[in-house]
């Protein structure tokens, strides 16, 4: 009898507790992608149909569920530009213009397929509710709906590896389920401190036929920041945090 009880208990423990809880599953995916507060470097590459490329290097920092900032390090024409997101507020600071201006999530400060919300991505669980989860072979398929109208994409479909609990593909959709873009997560890499995640996100869009954009991640490190870093007044000083 005792053996049976132990066997049943073992089975219960072995089952993922989030199997039926999409929101918990999404939170786990978020944490597997990034620590809650961290710094990182990224390179964004826009590739045109003729193969011509334009590259941008960014230093980014995030704190909690609603604060993220990014500073452009290269090319020289963009150096010193910074973007800040505080919840639903987004600003762009251009050194020549000298003052931050409000921008929107669907705009793109760099052109190409990535827009501002891709560059200033908060946790998915902070912006979306999970409507349902399906199991597709070795993957979960999560259907997400935006919590508010201010989120860039009304709906997301996330394919996540069941074992690693990391996304392999994300489709970004309108309310009417029209595809805006697809993100492909590639090249798993060990970033240290137990963080193993895709180092490359590639995206294409039916709205930009023949174009694609790539985001390469490096040096993702846990780091805590003061709240004052994520303010309009601090935007010209983000370089001092590197």
């Amino acid at each position: 009898m005792l053996k049976i009880i132990v066997a049943v208990l073992s089975l219960l423990v072995a089952l993922p507790v989030y199997a039926l809880d999409g929101d918990a599953l999404l939170k786990k995916i978020d944490r597997n992608l990034n620590p809650e507060s961290f710094e990182m470097y990224r390179k964004l590459i826009n590739v045109e149909p003729d193969g011509k490329k334009k590259e941008y290097t960014l230093f980014s920092m995030k704190k909690g569920t609603d604060k993220i900032a990014a500073l452009f390090l290269a090319p020289a024409s963009e150096k010193g530009r910074s973007t800040l997101r505080l919840g639903e507020n987004m600003w762009l600071y251009i050194p020549n213009v000298g003052k931050p201006i409000r921008i929107t999530s669907l705009q793109s400060v760099i052109g190409g397929v990535f827009n501002n919300s891709d560059i200033l991505q908060l946790d998915y669980s902070a912006e979306y509710d999970v409507e349902k989860v399906e199991e597709k072979g070795g993957e979960y398929l999560l259907y997400l709906k935006a919590k508010t109208k201010t989120v860039a994409y009304d709906r997301l479909k996330i394919w996540a590896d069941k074992g690693k609990l990391l996304p392999t593909k994300i489709e970004c959709l309108t309310e009417a389920n029209m595809l805006i873009k697809t993100l492909y997560f590639k090249d798993h890499k060990d970033f240290g401190e137990g963080l193993v995640r895709p180092a490359v996100i590639e995206t294409d869009s039916p709205l930009y036929k023949g174009y694609k954009s790539i985001m390469i991640y490096a040096k993702i490190k846990k780091r805590t920041f003061k709240d004052e870093v994520f303010t309009l007044t601090f935007m010209p000083n983000l370089e001092s945090l590197r």
């Binding site: 590739v47 490329k53 290269a74 150096k79």
Partner: peptide, 24 residues
């Protein structure tokens, strides 16, 4: 034309190193 042939995407970490000075 400044277009370049498509090549592998690389991210050289030396691009992220911070120097105490900057000139541009």
């Amino acid at each position: 034309a400044i277009g370049a042939a498509e090549s592998d995407y690389t991210f050289n970490l030396s691009e992220t190193e911070k120097k105490p000075y900057h000139f541009g």
